[in-house]
Design a protein around this nucleic acid. Structure first.
Length: 420
RNA sequence: GCGGAGAUGGCCCAGCCUGGUAAGGCGAUAGACUGCUAAUCUAUUGUCCGCAAGGACUCGGGGGUUCGAAUCCCCCUCUCCGCGCCA
């Protein structure tokens, strides 16, 4: 959520940010109009309330006929105030609605562009792997080795779900432990939050109202299955104020995540795009002055996981048109999957600046006596499991159909060196 | 799920029965005073509107009654205690 004051002061800046992100500027105009009417009405009502407060004080000191007369006079005023209150809450709801749908302002270093094609490759690590045989795609490998079972997944929950079996399940568990251990060493505190989140949490990080259709909803209890650990982890501190000395705060969390992937029709084969997936996430709460440095270091922390796994990857700086609406700046890490010669997004590292903090009211106090201000939140996957699994299976496959286990994972698999 | 007790400013806590517009304390910061620290005194220490003067709002959340609600009524959330159920 943007600061209403900034929108009022510099609407043209907001307008150009919206345009760069390929958003309509209708929301901005609708906000400005409603906001003005809201402020006028609040002001008008405050004047009436001032009269009411003053007269009520007088009444307390009166008695008899005089008191009765005053009270009679006030009845009409009470009705007027009540009507204005109703009007104000309707206007406020309207302006909040617009405010919640306006995307974050883009950082000046973000390239302007329309689609994924305009993203900028800022780093490439390791050469794409060359094979002396034709590499298989991960779903073939998974089924040949009987470590991924799509049929059983579909039977249990439906299309878009799968079962990991035997060494597949163990590899998943090894990856989770390896990643958590690594992030622990990098200074992130491990947490295991609720998987279900309420409306306030989903609004706090920006999933609601815009992404409503992409989340699973439990109607009866009013809860959502988290689409990313970013939601519960960030919302742990909703409505909290930190002392400056407590920042920065780093968390890491392993959590299953759920996405309905409504309206998606391509990429249905395999485990690269599924409804339920594991992810190890990093979340930072930082001082606004340091958020871009913190983003860079978080990106490096995510990269180091992939480097340790010896997987070829590249880092993209997303353009304005391809960024999610709550990010001010975002890097994607893509893994190379040689089976289908594809690049798979395994991590998205974003600086949300004060966008989420304002929605979720997460503040810090610059100095003990000073007014609290919104801090900045940053997060990134470190990293998404299924796509890492795809990259491992496809990059480490051998001609005989077996898969070599990356060295760093072997301690997590009782020293086992291959699957199959 | 049932019964009981609670939720008050950054923190603690009074006020609620009997409606009159949030007392007091702690911590923090600034100033005063004092060889220094401490103590003491004074001020500041929630949100919104407003350039400002100023005003409005705020007692877990939402409704209602009233000229006026922390206080009375209704609904909801969370916490604690007991009971029930349960991996």
């Amino acid at each position: 959520m943007l600061d209403a004051n900034i929108i009022r002061q510099d609407p043209d800046m907001v307008r150009s940010s919206l345009t760069d992100r390929l958003y309509s500027t209708d929301l901005l105009d609708s906000f400005l109009g409603t906001d003005l009417r809201w402020r006028e009405t609040v002001d008008k009502n405050n004047r009436l309330k001032q009269v009411r407060n003053n007269v009520s004080m007088e009444i307390a000191g009166l008695s008899g006929e005089e008191k009765k007369t005053k009270i009679a006079e006030m009845k009409g005023l009470a009705d007027q105030i009540k009507n204005l209150d109703t009007e104000i809450s309707a206007l406020d709801a309207e302006r909040q609605e617009a405010l919640l749908l306006i995307p974050n302002l883009v950082h000046s270093s973000v390239p302007v562009g329309k689609s994924a094609e305009d993203n900028v490759i800022v780093k490439t690590w390791m050469k794409e792997k060359c094979f002396t045989f034709k590499p298989k795609e991960h779903f073939e490998i998974g089924e040949d080795l009987d470590i991924i079972d799509f049929v059983r997944g579909a039977k249990v929950a439906g299309s878009g779900f799968y079962v990991l079996k035997g060494d597949g399940a163990r590899l998943e568990r090894a990856l989770i432990n390896f990643m958590l251990d690594m992030h622990n060493q990098q200074g992130y505190r491990e947490v295991f939050p609720p998987i279900l989140v309420n409306d306030e949490s989903a609004t706090g990080t920006g999933q609601l109202p815009k992404m409503r259709d992409d989340m699973y909803h439990l109607e009866r209890d009013g809860l959502w299955l988290n689409p990313t650990a970013e939601v519960p982890v960030t919302n742990m501190h909703r409505d909290e104020i930190f002392e400056n000395s407590e920042l920065p705060i780093y968390y890491t969390a392993y959590l299953p995540s759920f996405r309905r992937e409504a309206g998606r029709h391509s990429d249905t084969r395999g485990i690269a795009r599924v409804h339920q997936f594991n992810k190890v996430e990093m979340v930072k709460f930082v001082h606004p002055d340091h958020s871009y440095e913190e983003l860079r270091s978080l990106l490096l922390d995510a990269e180091s996981v992939i480097q340790a796994l010896e997987l070829p990857y590249r880092v993209l700086l997303l353009c304005t048109g391809d960024m999610s609406f709550h990010a001010a700046k975002c890097y994607d890490i893509e893994l190379h999957a040689p089976g289908g010669d594809r690049w798979l997004e395994a991590s998205s590292c974003s600086n949300f600046t004060d966008f989420q903090a304002r929605r979720a009211r997460i503040k810090y106090r610059p100095e003990p006596h000073l007014k609290s201000e919104f801090l900045h939140t940053i997060n990134g996957s470190g990293v998404a499991l299924p796509r890492t699994m795809v990259a491992i299976l496809e990059n480490f496959q051998n001609e005989d159909g077996t898969v070599t286990i990356p060295k760093v994972l072997r301690p997590y698999m009782q020293g086992q060196e291959t699957i199959g």
